[in-house]
Design a protein around this nucleic acid. Structure first.
Lengths: 167, 167
DNA sequence: CCTGCAAATAGGAATGATTGTCAATGACTG
DNA sequence: CAGTCATTGACAATCATTCCTATTTGCAGG
């Protein structure tokens, strides 16, 4: 709520990008933008919904979802963790890291002696105990890239309504 | 399906741990163990279910879930990505990393010049393009640790049925 | 300032993933 | 070999998310 310059800058960027994308700047979108821009904790749709609801009692959760994904598709927010969907299990107990395709969800392990010894800043300890540490690399896997090439568009970062649904 | 020594070793570990934990080694559990132990891709419950169904046409998806979480609670498998639940959005576009509490889902950003320049093994490129790279640190946050201390047990890694449900 | 239309919204139903409930079944102990 | 309790399967329930659709609204022109 204390509008720092960082937050105002984000908000301005959201509005500019929305305008540039030719989408309408509705009251509900502006409120959702404000909420997301000022979030420090990484909120889920429900949280944003509850917060926005205070000022705009009639917003629908659906609109919050659509606006959040709009920001995502415009490249203005990211999602925490790989593609949602279902919980996935990892039988590999050795230290390792993950490559995850943001299109199809393909996940592969890789190892790196260098990364295994990475030093985590002391400040992190103030958040809590550290149990595991690993690197998550995201990208578009070979299979999905081939599919994109076969279709029309080349290898762009996932955006647009259709890019969201896959597992 | 080609039972490598690694896989056989995992399987043996699962059975030993299950026995040690005093849970029964049922036919369905053994099949699910086998399936998980031999998985290279990180499967979700559905995938394991479909695979096990071939040999055991009557298994229920419920049993697969229960067994998967059993393995998880015994510390024999991990989950990919932070605690499931809902998609969470991140308005921070600067390079940064995440600390995530495995109990309550609290997520915090941290930065590290050292980690920002980490080198990803070339082999990863064979999986596909690399769009983002960041470190995910998991642990138990201060708040949850305090709660645990207040209750009975001290600061153990999340295990047991109750440790799963929170957001 | 008024009008029309495509885009956007509210709501509620639908979907997919996951978990809870409970009676029947089966794995081990004595 | 029988009894007991964990385990299972079927199904209902829940949660997050998306779909559908009638209604409303932002905004370009007149």
């Amino acid at each position: 709520m204390t509008d720092s310059p960082e937050i105002l800058s984000r908000l301005a960027r959201y509005q500019a990008a929305a305008k540039a994308a030719g989408v309408k700047l509705t009251h509900q979108r502006l409120e959702i933008f404000r909420e997301v821009a000022s979030s420090l904790e990484h909120p889920d749709a429900e949280s944003v919904f509850r917060a926005v609801q205070i000022r705009l009692p009639t917003v629908s959760l659906d609109t919050v979802y659509r606006t959040l994904w709009l920001l995502h598709d415009l490249g203005l927010v990211a999602t925490l963790g790989p593609r949602r969907g279902s919980v996935r299990f990892d039988a590999n107990l050795e230290p390792h890291h993950h490559y995850v395709c943001t299109r199809c969800g393909l996940a592969r392990d890789f190892t790196s002696a260098e990364l295994d010894v990475m030093r985590i800043p002391d400040a992190v300890q103030t958040f809590g105990s550290i149990v595991t540490t690993h690197v998550e690399v995201r990208g578009v896997c070979g299979g999905c890239a081939a599919k994109s090439a076969a279709a029309g568009q080349p290898d762009l970062p996932p955006s647009g309504q259709e890019a969201r649904r896959e597992t």
